[in-house]
Design a protein around this nucleic acid. Structure first.
Length: 470
RNA sequence: GCGGGCGUCGUAUAAUGGCUAAUAUGCCUGCCUUCCAAGCAAGCGAUGAGAGUUCGAUUCUCUCCGCCCGCACCA
């Protein structure tokens, strides 16, 4: 288990400019987090590592970047509009909640009253409207009105469930209803942006099977209770691949992915002992999946899902073919064999990886009798790779030389920070906390022989090297 | 969503129905400092938002917002 406290991570993330509460100046917005300069860099490095490994590192991988807003039909065909809900019911008497499919009859299992169970569902799609809201009426069920817990009729008198609805405070029988025809959903997964472009990529490249289409992008879910820092939020970033395979060979590719995922996680510095594979049983799998492995990680809050690997069959392409009328078949070159490819889908959450990286890198040790906190980030992930300091900042010749070294390193590596704050010990501690692997210090010897000291974050040891050798 | 707890400088804590809301750290300016949070001096910085009670509210009450914990949920 992780022995780092979540609050320590949150505090450091805030203090050092990794992650801030979303909309903080206005009191925040539940389930949103903003990334500060270092958090943005760390996130970028994680995404780069992923691209390097799975897109650049695999053959026949094609990256796309689809629009977040998509035609409504995408989500109707994918099954999300119908099934992407939590089938909960609530007792209007005792307020307890239950899964609708676990109940028998209309008796509340908690307080035993009958006829008190509502007909709610939590709609997990987020959406935006293209035009302003209109006013409509709803069937008042009595008691407290809860958004998502009432039904709304559209202009044709048909019941529409699940939309977030705002009460008119002046008239409790009137609510604001969004015009259904103007709705476009915020994608709850990036996958559909890939499937909808499958045909386009085929037309441009016609890659041999197996091949993959990769995408990194934001996704949105109307989570009931965002929780555990950035672990579960309403807006998050996914890195997904749809890997198209011959249905007869899906297991081979599945296994390939499974292995590479472990390699990747190790590269991020995650401890093998904290990573657990969970074979998801049929009952818990998504509606499209024939096999799913959840990769779980020992987070500070608890063991929880880090990413998923799913065999998605031909569910999506088949749906698209049926709903769009367009042919999604793949023709094997040479044999002219035709079939709809099946799909292996590894799905990574950037924030979850970031949280795992932070919590595994968070270390506390003792230096000269004092507690030291440092982030043992892998070199490629560290937001700052080199910090450059003059040993003393009131000696112009040292400062000038240090500036020179800084400029050269900055040009070479990019993520290099100038630091002349306080004294040298303070700088080391500060750089430790943001996970800078190397501190370069220019002293009087540098002026003589062109060598500098490089101090290592994890061991605190220093050695002298020529400037050019860095 | 329900129930419980909480919300004070960037961070970590203290205190208070009435005095300039304190301490450490941080940040900033200057001095000093020849390698692991040294020192001196000056400065910056907070009661989540709104309403109510009150002569007076950061403190009491209510609503909202947010965070944490439990339940539930997370195809």
């Amino acid at each position: 288990m992780s022995d780092v406290k979540l609050e320590d991570i949150v505090s450091l993330a805030k203090r050092r400019g990794f992650i801030y509460q979303g909309s903080e100046v206005y009191g925040g917005l539940s389930g949103t987090w903003d990334y500060g300069p270092l958090g943005t860099k760390l996130k970028r490095n994680i995404k780069d590592a992923w691209l390097k490994m799975f897109v650049d590192g695999w053959d026949d991988m094609h990256q796309v970047d689809a629009a977040i807003l998509m035609n409504k039909k995408v989500w109707e065909a994918s099954g999300h509009v119908d099934t992407f809900t939590d089938p909960l019911v609530e007792c209007s008497n005792c307020k307890s909640r239950f899964r609708a499919d676990h109940l028998e009859g209309d008796k509340c299992p908690n307080c035993s009253k009958t006829g008190t169970l509502s007909e709610p569902r939590q709609f997990n799609m987020m959406f935006r409207t293209n035009v302003g809201a209109t006013w409509g009426s709803y069937e008042n069920r009595g008691g407290n009105i809860v958004s998502g817990d009432i039904s709304v009729k559209n202009q044709n008198g048909e019941k529409i469930d699940g939309f977030s609805i705002k009460e008119d405070r002046n008239d409790r029988n009137s609510v604001m209803v969004y015009d259904v025809n103007s709705v476009s959903y915020l994608r709850p997964e990036t996958a559909q942006g890939i499937f909808t472009n499958y045909k386009n990529v085929l037309d441009s490249f016609y890659p041999d099977l197996p091949f993959g289409i990769a995408q990194i992008g934001k996704a949105f879910r109307n989570e009931i209770s965002p929780r555990d820092f950035v672990f579960r939020s309403r807006e998050f970033e996914q890195m997904e691949v749809e890997y198209f395979v011959d249905p007869a060979k899906w297991e081979e590719s599945f296994e390939h992915w499974r292995k590479d995922i472990h390699v990747f996680l190790e590269q991020l510095g995650l401890d093998k002992d904290n990573i657990h594979e969970l074979e998801v049983p049929e009952d818990d799998r998504a509606h499209y999946s024939k096999r799913t492995i959840d990769f779980e990680y020992d987070f500070p809050h608890k063991k929880d899902e880090l990413l998923g690997l799913a065999y998605r069959t031909d569910f999506d392409l088949k749906n698209i073919q049926e709903n769009s009328g367009k042919n999604m078949e793949y023709t094997v070159k040479g044999t002219n064999e035709k079939f709809i490819p099946h799909v292996i889908e590894p799905s990574f959450g950037v924030e979850r990886l970031l949280m795992a990286v932070l919590s595994s890198a968070y270390k506390v040790d003792e230096q000269n009798g004092e507690q030291r906190v440092y982030l043992a980030l892998p070199e490629d992930l560290a937001p700052v790779r080199y910090a450059v300091s003059p040993l003393l900042k009131n000696k112009p010749e040292l400062v000038a030389k240090a500036r020179e070294v800084y400029k050269a390193l900055k040009k070479k590596y990019g993520n290099v920070m100038w630091d002349d704050n306080g004294n040298i010990g303070k700088r080391y501690r500060r750089q430790d906390e943001i996970g800078t692997p190397h501190c370069v210090v220019i002293d009087f010897d540098t002026l003589e022989d062109g060598t500098v000291t490089i101090r290592d974050r994890d061991t605190t040891e220093q050695k002298r090297v020529k400037i050019e050798e860095i």
